[in-house]
């Protein structure tokens, strides 16, 4: 596969995925000056990105006086970091990169002394150790915060990594003596 002529990618032969392109979304904050948008888009094209859409929220100025812009583009996965780096080198403020990079969502329910065991630490450990993004969280603590409570978290993860992610969450659960109710993967549940 590494010597396929169209690949043209010497440092990472596995980087090509079918067709080699993937869609990404970056969220930028631009200074409200003429030519600023064009300047911000250049690093994307320069690094092999193909622009898909630009959402320029002129009416929605940030507290710092900047204009948020959401840009969708596609590029080979191995070039995405170069695009983001190129934007930053050009002095463009990148506030969120690659949300679309996360391809799957899994739900888990955690049960135990969630507050006493520092729920916010539990969630940051899930984000760091399981490499997942917590998209949504609901908490039920019918016994009050010092009793047994339950939390349901929806996690965005990379496609195909659910097994690793759940294993990492299991081990965090073991550490903190929490019951982890995992989704049943595999088969047609």
């Amino acid at each position: 596969m590494g010597n396929a002529p169209e690949s043209g990618d010497e440092d990472d032969p596995d980087a090509e995925t079918d067709g080699g392109l993937r869609a990404y979304t970056v969220r930028l904050e631009l200074v409200d000056e003429p030519g600023e948008l064009l300047r911000a888009l250049a690093p994307i094209a320069d690094n092999g990105g193909n622009l898909l859409s630009i959402h320029h929220e002129r009416g929605n100025i940030t507290p710092r006086g900047h204009i948020p812009v959401e840009v969708d583009f596609e590029c080979p996965p191995d070039r995405f970091d170069d695009v983001v780096e190129g934007l930053r080198d050009a002095g463009v403020n990148v506030i969120q990169a690659g949300a679309e990079h996360y391809g799957e969502a899994v739900n888990v329910v955690l049960v135990g002394n969630l507050v006493e065991t520092d729920l916010s630490n539990t969630l940051s450990r899930i984000e760091d150790e399981a490499d997942a993004v917590v998209q949504d969280l609901s908490l039920a603590a019918p016994e009050g915060t010092d009793g047994i409570s339950s939390a349901r978290a929806r996690l965005a993860i990379d496609s195909g990594r659910s097994g690793d992610v759940l294993a990492a969450i299991r081990s965090i659960g073991t550490d903190k003596e929490l019951t982890v109710v995992e989704p049943l993967l595999g088969g047609e549940a």
Binding site: V111, S138, A140, A141, A151, V181
Partner: peptide, 11 residues
């Protein structure tokens, strides 16, 4: 044994 009713509600 460790599954409370609240976990089922959240699910």
């Amino acid at each position: 044994q460790s599954i409370p009713g609240s976990a089922l509600d959240l699910a």
